[in-house]
Design a protein around this nucleic acid. Structure first.
Lengths: 194, 194
DNA sequence: TTAATAATTAACCTAAGGTTCAAATTTTTA
DNA sequence: TAAAAATTTGAACCTTAGGTTAATTATTAA
């Protein structure tokens, strides 16, 4: 790959990250091409050299972020750990993500209706893939008799909901540290699985 | 109160409900005064007879919806029921609200940065009041030794998160009926409290 | 019935955001 | 170093949204 190509891809990534930032600050409609560009000291016209239009840019935001999150979890699942340990780590990873990467995290879990048919289908597919990683782990736990017999889908949704909500109330300098929160949630949610 | 006044208030309410609907269809920035008015077969100019501007209208949406939700729960809490029964009913009420009144529900729980300082403070205050109803019930349960000793705030957040998420995946004609979901969530979440 | 009040609207204004494009600038390549 | 390719931009265009106004219609009350 040529150097220029590499740089182009790198720039695209920068723009996407900037867009993620602005979208989470202003919302989908509120995010302007102007502000996304300004964040990188560019003009909005430059963005159109890299992306066809706003819709395209926002779609690629979703795609990048979701694929990264899925890859992270899959890497964890490949480790030789017990089901309970994997569950604990997935909870920790998810919470960490929700707190530390609030902006990209929102992109995954705040569904929007701005995409084209195909784009929307792709985004939904990725979201399903992510949550099915949790679902499958629960199923495996049930198989191994580590977790009780139950509707794994319902439990997945309950758990993801509980986790996703954390970023709505978490405050970096609040009473509860991230580690405390992770520890509590791990134990409390495991209780439901047992 | 004069008849005309009553009608005016009724109309205001209609507009607010229309706004809630559109906001949840399009998002805050995406909702236009035009569309809000069209929903009621009015022109946008009429809206300005009832509300100073868009910000004012959206603020009053929040206020109405949140106060109603709080009143509903408070009425329930006034009944002579045990802590567990109250918890079950609050869970049921909240889920029902999340599913059946998805639009107004979103208004309560999707925080936005479009308001003035005072308006925002008021909205946040109302949100806190709502969640504290759950928090207080948990505290009471702990006092009565019905629930285990624990950080009631963390549990409140875990529970509200789990519940709020339901509307993201619930489908009216899906595999799981609303009643099944309520029943499962009641039992699973009580498990965490015990 | 009529004067006052309430409600509605069409037309207009301004501002902002998305998009395009030719020209300018920078970087790469030969 | 000069031509070619890649990148950036300013300026303009276009559409649309929020907001205003002045005039009109509907309703109420005397």
């Amino acid at each position: 790959m040529k150097l220029s190509e590499k740089r182009s891809i790198e720039k695209k990534k920068q723009i996407i990250l900037s867009a993620v930032k602005i979208v989470n600050r202003r919302g989908y409609e509120g995010a302007t091409m102007e502000e996304i560009a300004a964040e990188l000291l560019m003009t909005k016209a430059s963005l159109y050299y890299y992306f066809r239009n706003k819709e395209d840019l926002l779609y690629q935001c979703h795609s990048l972020v979701l694929n990264q999150a899925i890859a992270d979890i899959e890497e964890l699942l490949a480790q030789p750990l017990s089901v309970e340990e994997k569950f604990f780590q997935m909870v920790a990873l998810h919470i960490d993500y929700a707190i530390e990467e609030k902006e990209t995290f929102n992109m995954i879990f705040e569904p929007k209706n701005i995409f084209s048919q195909e784009q929307l289908a792709e985004v939904i597919e990725l979201r399903k893939r992510y949550s099915s990683l949790f679902n499958n782990l629960i199923l495996k736990g049930i198989e191994e008799k580590k977790f009780r017999q139950a509707d794994s889908y319902l439990l997945t949704m309950l758990i993801l909901g509980a986790l996703n909500w954390i970023q709505q109330w978490y405050q970096p300098n609040g009473r509860l540290s991230k580690e405390e929160i992770i520890s509590h949630y791990q134990k409390d949610l495991l209780k439901i699985l047992k």
